[in-house]
Computed example of a mutant assay.
Amino acid sequence: MSNTKRPRVLITGATGQVGSKTIANLLSNKELEIIAAVHSPQKVAAFNARGIETVILDFDDESTYTAALQGVDRLLIVTGYTVDMLRQSKAILDSAKKAGVQHVVHLGACGRDDTTVAHWAWHQLVERYIEWAGFSYTHLRPETFMQNILSYGGKKAIENGIIHAYVEGARLSWVDVDDVAKVAALALAYPEKHSGQTYRLGYDAVTFDEMATMMTAIIGKPFRYEPLAPEVFLQSMIDAGAEMAYMGCVYEHWKRYAAGTIPGADDTFDNFAQITGEQPVKMADFIKKHQAELDY
């Protein structure tokens, strides 16, 4: 029996879309130890029932960092949708460096290197800090999640065949969260192959009108797109008590999408097959996969 230590891989955001799906992709790899980071004891039982080790890590409580990072070799960083992501990322990276973490996979956001979309740029500043700190790294920059057409902000995004979005007729680049998680898992499992890489992840460029046409054809019921003014989003975030330093940036980027002033908003990439050996999910594939959820 080998006494070789298996690399310990810590997944933050373990209960979220990307984190949970990344864990699912890694569980079959018996050469790794997978640890789910959760921010409260109430989250532990569900992971333990599946045989997944857990640690308590609260991004807003730096006293939880040392124990959570003990013995960790590789780290997936997934932060939340507040401006605190900047402080949180720096703090966790500083602790990770002290703990001896070797490889960091960071879930960032859309955008070319010269983006001026504020919250996308924040993620790029985190990328630079990771590099400056001397980690081996893989940067992930997913485009718009296809899952957003199922629900957004905790609410259904499509009601009775009516699609609402805040971008007028803009063409967006899209990616299935399942595909993002596949890339994240491979980057964590095989850092020697993926170190030093920035992977932009977007594989289909589609307008909401085109999406409605696809849904109508695939599901066999009428769908149509009714654009909303970005101001509707802004007011909904204010009413919900959201953290407005971040959501104000999201409001501004909806305005820029609608005005057509985000360079590369519809950029797509051909890297998925090279990274995974598979073909990425396109929008029509996604609609077929989630037909039951989209039907009405």
Rank of each mutant, 00 (worst) to 15 (best):
K5V: 14
P7F: 02
A14T: 10
A14W: 07
T15D: 03
V18T: 06
V18Q: 02
G19S: 14
I23C: 06
I34A: 06
A37C: 12
H39W: 08
V44W: 08
V44M: 12
F47A: 02
F47K: 01
A49K: 15
R50G: 13
G51M: 12
E53V: 10
I56T: 12
F59C: 06
D60G: 13
E62T: 09
S63T: 15
T64C: 14
A68F: 06
D73V: 11
I77D: 03
G80Y: 12
V83Y: 05
D84R: 09
D84W: 10
Q88N: 14
Q88P: 09
S89T: 13
I92Q: 03
L93Q: 01
A99W: 09
G100Q: 04
V101G: 00
H103L: 03
V105Y: 05
V105S: 05
H106Q: 11
H106L: 10
H106C: 09
L107H: 13
G108T: 08
G111H: 07
D114T: 15
A118L: 08
W122I: 06
I130H: 07
E131C: 11
E131M: 13
W132L: 11
G134L: 14
L140G: 03
R141M: 10
R141K: 13
T144D: 00
N148C: 09
Y152C: 09
G153Q: 04
K156H: 09
A157H: 09
E159N: 12
N160V: 07
I163S: 12
H164Q: 15
Y166F: 14
E168I: 05
G169H: 10
D176T: 05
D176A: 07
D176S: 06
D178I: 09
D178H: 08
D179H: 02
V180W: 01
K193R: 13
H194L: 07
Q197W: 08
T198M: 02
Y199R: 05
L201R: 00
D204Y: 00
D204W: 00
A205G: 03
A205K: 00
V206F: 00
A212G: 12
A217Y: 07
A217E: 05
I219R: 01
F223R: 00
R224K: 15
R224H: 15
Y225V: 14
P227E: 08
L228N: 03
P230M: 13
I238Q: 06
M247I: 11
V250S: 01
Y251Q: 05
E252W: 07
W254D: 00
T261V: 08
I262S: 01
P263Y: 03
P263C: 10
G264I: 04
F269H: 04
D270Y: 09
N271H: 09
F272W: 04
I275L: 14
G277S: 13
G277L: 14
E278F: 12
E278M: 10
V281G: 01
K282P: 04
E293G: 13
Y296R: 07
